[in-house]
């Protein structure tokens, strides 16, 4: 693993820590939901740097699956916040 990849991981880790701070402190529930959404997108970034660092392409499969599942989770959280039926 080269120096550039380590720096990339450090920056992503710092971003994730900022997100976690907002998840812990966030005064309202939507704040936390937004942070969780952002954390999911950051993890997609982690996966692609991992793919670069190791040269194995199955990390990209993880990234695609994570992007889609975190989208569904976000929609479910948003529907829950609306407090209405899940079909509407």
């Amino acid at each position: 693993m080269s120096c550039l990849e380590l720096i990339a991981f450090a920056v992503l880790l710092l971003s994730a820590v900022l997100c976690l701070y907002r998840i812990g402190r966030g005064p309202t529930a939507p704040d936390r939901a937004v942070s969780i959404d952002i954390l999911g997108t950051l993890i997609v970034g982690f996966c692609c740097i991992m793919a670069l660092a190791t040269g194995r392409d199955y990390y990209m499969n993880i990234a695609i699956a994570w992007a889609l599942i975190s989208f569904v989770a976000t929609l479910a959280l948003a529907k829950y916040l609306e407090g209405r039926s899940y079909d509407a």
């Binding site: 529930a29 990234a63 695609i64 976000t74 929609l75 829950y80 916040l81």
Partner: peptide
Amino acid sequence: KALICAAFVLLTSPVGAHAICRGAYLS
């Protein structure tokens, strides 16, 4: 795979933000 994933992120992320903001306002 990276290009397909970029297309997915570009399509799904704004929809998620829109849904959460609408939910936040309605809650």
